[in-house]
Amino acid sequence: MSVTSTDHPHLFGPGLATVAVIAASVGFGLVPYFARTLIAEGMAPHAIAFFRYAFAAIVLLPSVWLACAQWVPIAWGLVAGIGMGVGWIGYVRALELAPVSTVGVLYMTYPVFTLLIAWLMFGDVPRRRAILAATMIVGAAALATSPDAITPDQVPALVLSLAAPLGFGFGINVLVHKLTVLHPLVRIGCVSLGSVLGLLPLMAATPAAALVPVSVSGWWLVAGIAFGSALVPQLLFTVAAPVIGTARTAIAGSFELPTMFLVGWFAFAEPVGPAQWIACAIIISAIALTPGKSIRSVAANIAVDGEGDTRR
């Protein structure tokens, strides 16, 4: 069953909507380039995470303010945003130390955490196909992090990077189970605002030199990660995903992972071996197997959660 409700159904046909989802996924997949380059300029991982969410929070703050009467779901969104923002620090830290392809595969384990949290917190028992897909994803992650693919000094950072898919898994569940009464832009806004609030204490405790870029090119990278890999892709997903439904959105959205691989290959001269490409294929297959649980981005889940609620 495909999603039939959309805020702007006249803007996209199925073909253009598919292209929009792929373009958004490329934007998400470019995060490693922006993050690692900014780290090389001396920015702290949490400062990068802060700026990534801050622009969306500022742009959408008026929408959240106008909906303040619905404070209970907004509070849930803020909590989800805090978890997602803090969890993203581990992902950025791992990108600093480990190959982009390996970190990318671990990042795409979010459906496993989504299923576990849905089951434990919301009583949403996973279906057999979802369990099979989760098993495939775990196998892909194990393949990509095999002893011949990583070094012992990278293990702590890779373990810490799992905080990102854990945070996203929690955020997806909150979006599906708690935020359906909010307008889509309000949902994105309150989650982004929560991420900013969660990162503020770390920002306050960080030396000023590590909070901002030291060059003009660094500020362009900040703008790129805020708009090109966050706000704009999320809005594209919000509009386009309902047009093509969850299945095609899931498959088109999985283009994020090979984009990460190509970023590591071309931007940082990291070889991508057979194990990583096999892991990529396994994850894309798992995503296609369970389209209802497969959308990674906040905006994509916002766009398709109506179908998820119908299935429940």
Rank of each mutant, 00 (worst) to 15 (best):
G13M: 13
S285Q: 12
L30Q: 03
P184S: 07
S285W: 05
A134R: 09
A80W: 01
V272S: 10
T37Q: 05
L185E: 05
I278S: 07
S161W: 04
T180S: 08
Q154W: 05
I150N: 03
M136K: 06
M84V: 08
C190L: 09
I48R: 01
F255V: 15
G123F: 10
V181C: 08
A205D: 00
M121Q: 12
P207I: 02
A75Q: 13
M121V: 14
V86G: 00
L175D: 01
P45V: 08
F227Y: 10
L231A: 03
G306A: 09
A205F: 01
R248P: 02
S217K: 15
V239K: 03
V64Q: 04
P233H: 01
A130E: 11
V31H: 04
A288N: 10
F113W: 12
I295N: 07
H177I: 08
S146D: 10
V19L: 15
F261L: 15
H46Y: 06
D124W: 11
G308R: 15
V304A: 09
R36M: 05
T4M: 12
N301R: 11
G83R: 00
V86P: 00
S215P: 01
P156K: 15
L115G: 02
L30A: 09
L257V: 12
F255Y: 13
I82C: 01
A57L: 03
W219L: 12
V239F: 11
L120C: 13
L231S: 01
I137M: 10
G169Y: 06
F237W: 06
P111E: 07
F51W: 14
I188T: 04
